[in-house]
Design a protein around this nucleic acid. Structure first.
Lengths: 186, 186
DNA sequence: ATCGTTTTTTACCAAATGATAAATGATTTC
DNA sequence: GAAATCATTTATCATTTGGTAAAAAACGAT
C-alpha cells in the first residue's frame, strides 16, 4: 500500500488522514497468469494499481489479428480511459499479479474529502496517456531493429517475462522478424 | 465563437451567463501558413481553438529527422499536454489559420465560476489524447498502403492541403514510397 | 520421463520499402 | 516571363520485412 501512496504523492500532497481514507477504500486482489481482467464490450469501472505483475492491453484489428497495444508494468495505475463507455480493448495478466483495486465510485467520492483529488486523478491518467502516446508513436518512424532496441531500453524487465509474439505484435512486426533481429544483435 | 461553444457543450452543460463569461476571455487571432505557433524548449501557456486551418505537431528524432506526430484539424482545442513543462514539440500552421485563444490562467479561472469547468476541461483533453493515441497506435501494425488508406479515411480534407512529405512522415514512410503508393491505388 | 502442445528459431523465397539519383512539375522571386 | 527554388514523381537497385513451412526448443500434463 505504501508504494501506491508514494505513487499518488508524486502528483499532489496528502496528509495522514487523507492517506488513511484512501487506504480504507482499497481492496487487495490477485490475478493469475493469462487471466483476462477486462474484456472488450463489457463495462470496467475500477481503478487498478499493479503491485506485482505485468498486464497487456490488446484488441483485434480488421484482419482479426490480435494487437498488443501496450504493456502495463508494476507500480502503475490504470483504468478505462473512456469512463462512461464499454471497454474497446482487453486487459490480460501476463504473469500472476497482485493488485490494489478501487471502485470508480469510491475513487471519485474521495474528492468530497480531498480537495485536490480530481486534479491528482487527472494528472495521473493524463501522464499515463501522454506516455503511451509517445511510446507507441515513436515506433511508427523506426525500423524493426530500432523498435526492438528502444523496447529493451524502455522495458528492460519485460523481455524475459513476456512471450515473444506479444512483443512482436507490440512492435508491429512478425515474430519471425523479431526472432531474426534478436539473433542479429546478439 | 458559436462553434467553439458548441464544441465545449459536447462535454458538459453551460448556461447563457457562463457562455458569455467564456466568450469574454477569448481572443481571436490569426496565423500565416508555415508560421510556428510554439517551439520546443519554450513555454506554451495557451488554450487554442482552431476555427480555420490545419496545424501539425512535430519533433526531431535522434537522427535529426523531422517527424510529424499528428495533425490538428478545424474545430479542435489544443494545448501543451504537459502543463507545467516546456514544449517538447513544435506546433506549426500548415495553412493560414483563424484561432480563438485563451491564456491558461484565464481558462483555469473559469472554474471559479463554472462548477464543472475542470471536469469539462479534462474530458476535452483526455478525449483528444485518447484519439491521438489510437490513431497513431493504429499505424504501427499496418503496411504502408493500409496506413495511407486509413489516413484518407480519417482525414479526408487534409490530403490536398498538406505537403506529401509531412503525410509520409506522419505515416512513417518515405515520401518516395508514398508517391509510389498514390500511383498504385489510383 | 514421455507424449503432446505451444513457442521460438531457422530457412527460403516473394514482396514491400528504403536509399540514391535524376527528371518532372509547381511555386516563388526578381 | 525566366531563373531559381522547392515539391513530387519516377527509376533502379539494395535491403528489410513478410509469408510459408519446417525444425528445434521449451513447456505442461499425465
Amino acid at each position: 500500500m505504501e508504494e501506491l501512496i508514494g505513487y499518488i504523492l508524486q502528483f499532489g500532497g496528502l496528509n495522514k488522514q487523507q492517506i488513511e481514507l484512501i487506504s480504507s477504500k482499497a481492496t487487495k486482489t490477485q490475478l493469475c497468469k493469462d487471466d483476462y481482467f477486462a474484456e472488450a464490450g463489457t463495462a470496467f469501472d475500477q481503478i487498478v494499481y499493479v503491485q506485482e505483475g505485468i498486464f497487456r492491453i490488446c484488441y483485434f484489428n480488421k484482419n482479426g489479428d490480435e494487437i498488443t497495444k501496450y504493456f502495463i508494468e508494476e507500480n502503475r495505475l490504470f483504468s478505462n480511459p473512456y469512463k462512461e463507455d464499454l471497454m474497446t480493448e482487453y486487459i490480460q495478466a501476463l504473469t500472476d499479479c497482485k493488485l490494489i483495486v478501487f471502485s470508480r465510485k469510491d475513487w471519485n467520492e474521495l474528492s468530497n474529502t480531498i480537495i485536490d483529488w480530481d486534479t491528482i486523478t487527472h494528472k495521473i491518467f493524463q501522464k499515463g496517456l501522454v506516455e503511451k502516446l509517445d511510446r507507441r508513436s515513436a515506433l511508427v518512424n523506426e525500423d524493426a531493429t530500432t523498435r526492438y532496441l528502444t523496447f529493451l531500453e524502455k522495458f528492460p524487465t519485460l523481455v524475459n517475462r513476456v512471450p515473444l509474439s506479444y512483443i512482436a505484435s507490440y512492435l508491429g512486426i512478425t515474430q519471425q522478424s523479431l526472432s531474426r533481429i534478436r539473433k542479429n544483435i546478439s
